[in-house]
Amino acid sequence: MSIINNINKAFDHRIRLGIMSVLMVNDYADFKMLKEMLGATDGNLASHTKALEKSEYIKVEKQFIGRKPNTRYSATKLGKAEFKKHINALEKLIGK
Protein backbone atom coordinates (compact mmCIF):
# COMPACT_ATOMS: atom_id res chain seq x y z
CA MET A 1 0.00 0.00 0.00
CA SER A 2 2.64 2.48 1.11
CA ILE A 3 4.69 1.81 -2.02
CA ILE A 4 1.90 3.01 -4.25
CA ASN A 5 1.62 6.11 -2.07
CA ASN A 6 5.26 6.90 -2.76
CA ILE A 7 4.67 7.07 -6.51
CA ASN A 8 4.61 10.79 -6.96
CA LYS A 9 2.14 12.09 -9.51
CA ALA A 10 4.22 15.22 -9.99
CA PHE A 11 6.94 13.09 -11.64
CA ASP A 12 4.57 11.01 -13.70
CA HIS A 13 5.61 12.34 -17.09
CA ARG A 14 8.61 11.63 -19.27
CA ILE A 15 9.75 15.28 -19.44
CA ARG A 16 9.43 15.85 -15.69
CA LEU A 17 11.22 12.61 -15.00
CA GLY A 18 13.99 13.78 -17.32
CA ILE A 19 14.27 17.23 -15.72
CA MET A 20 14.58 15.73 -12.25
CA SER A 21 17.10 13.09 -13.41
CA VAL A 22 19.35 15.74 -14.94
CA LEU A 23 19.12 17.94 -11.84
CA MET A 24 19.88 15.05 -9.49
CA VAL A 25 23.38 14.61 -10.95
CA ASN A 26 24.13 18.21 -12.02
CA ASP A 27 24.20 21.16 -9.63
CA TYR A 28 22.65 23.35 -12.29
CA ALA A 29 21.20 23.05 -15.77
CA ASP A 30 20.09 25.90 -17.96
CA PHE A 31 17.08 25.92 -20.24
CA LYS A 32 19.10 25.17 -23.35
CA MET A 33 20.79 22.15 -21.81
CA LEU A 34 17.49 20.68 -20.60
CA LYS A 35 15.98 21.27 -24.02
CA GLU A 36 18.83 19.45 -25.78
CA MET A 37 18.83 16.59 -23.29
CA LEU A 38 15.11 15.98 -23.33
CA GLY A 39 14.35 16.86 -26.92
CA ALA A 40 11.40 19.01 -25.83
CA THR A 41 9.97 22.17 -27.36
CA ASP A 42 10.29 25.51 -25.54
CA GLY A 43 6.64 25.66 -24.54
CA ASN A 44 6.47 22.06 -23.43
CA LEU A 45 9.58 22.34 -21.30
CA ALA A 46 8.47 25.66 -19.81
CA SER A 47 5.14 24.29 -18.65
CA HIS A 48 6.75 21.28 -17.00
CA THR A 49 9.44 23.32 -15.24
CA LYS A 50 6.71 25.65 -14.01
CA ALA A 51 4.76 22.74 -12.55
CA LEU A 52 7.85 21.41 -10.77
CA GLU A 53 8.66 24.90 -9.52
CA LYS A 54 5.15 25.26 -8.10
CA SER A 55 5.58 22.06 -6.07
CA GLU A 56 8.91 23.54 -4.90
CA TYR A 57 10.86 20.59 -6.28
CA ILE A 58 13.10 22.81 -8.39
CA LYS A 59 14.46 26.32 -8.03
CA VAL A 60 14.57 28.77 -10.90
CA GLU A 61 17.14 31.53 -11.16
CA LYS A 62 17.04 34.15 -13.85
CA GLN A 63 20.22 36.02 -14.54
CA PHE A 64 22.11 37.74 -17.31
CA ILE A 65 25.21 36.33 -18.93
CA GLY A 66 26.53 39.43 -20.61
CA ARG A 67 23.39 40.76 -22.21
CA LYS A 68 21.65 37.46 -22.74
CA PRO A 69 19.02 36.37 -20.25
CA ASN A 70 19.76 32.95 -18.88
CA THR A 71 17.47 30.75 -16.81
CA ARG A 72 19.04 28.07 -14.76
CA TYR A 73 17.42 25.37 -12.72
CA SER A 74 18.49 23.38 -9.70
CA ALA A 75 16.76 20.74 -7.60
CA THR A 76 15.66 21.74 -4.09
CA LYS A 77 16.30 19.58 -1.04
CA LEU A 78 12.63 18.66 -1.03
CA GLY A 79 12.72 17.82 -4.74
CA LYS A 80 15.75 15.54 -4.34
CA ALA A 81 14.19 13.72 -1.37
CA GLU A 82 10.85 13.28 -3.13
CA PHE A 83 12.50 12.08 -6.33
CA LYS A 84 14.54 9.52 -4.40
CA LYS A 85 11.33 8.21 -2.82
CA HIS A 86 9.80 8.03 -6.27
CA ILE A 87 12.74 6.03 -7.66
CA ASN A 88 12.67 3.64 -4.70
CA ALA A 89 8.95 3.09 -5.19
CA LEU A 90 9.47 2.39 -8.90
CA GLU A 91 12.22 -0.09 -8.17
CA LYS A 92 10.11 -1.92 -5.61
CA LEU A 93 7.21 -2.12 -8.01
CA ILE A 94 9.41 -3.67 -10.68
CA GLY A 95 10.86 -6.12 -8.20
CA LYS A 96 7.41 -7.58 -7.59
Partner: peptide, 9 residues
Protein backbone atom coordinates in the same frame (compact mmCIF):
# COMPACT_ATOMS: atom_id res chain seq x y z
CA UNK B 1 14.79 6.71 -18.70
CA UNK B 2 16.01 8.07 -15.34
CA UNK B 3 19.28 6.14 -15.57
CA UNK B 4 19.81 7.17 -19.18
CA UNK B 5 19.21 10.86 -18.43
CA UNK B 6 21.47 10.82 -15.39
CA UNK B 7 24.42 9.35 -17.24
CA UNK B 8 23.86 11.28 -20.48
CA UNK B 9 23.66 14.63 -18.69
Amino acid sequence: EIKNMMSRS
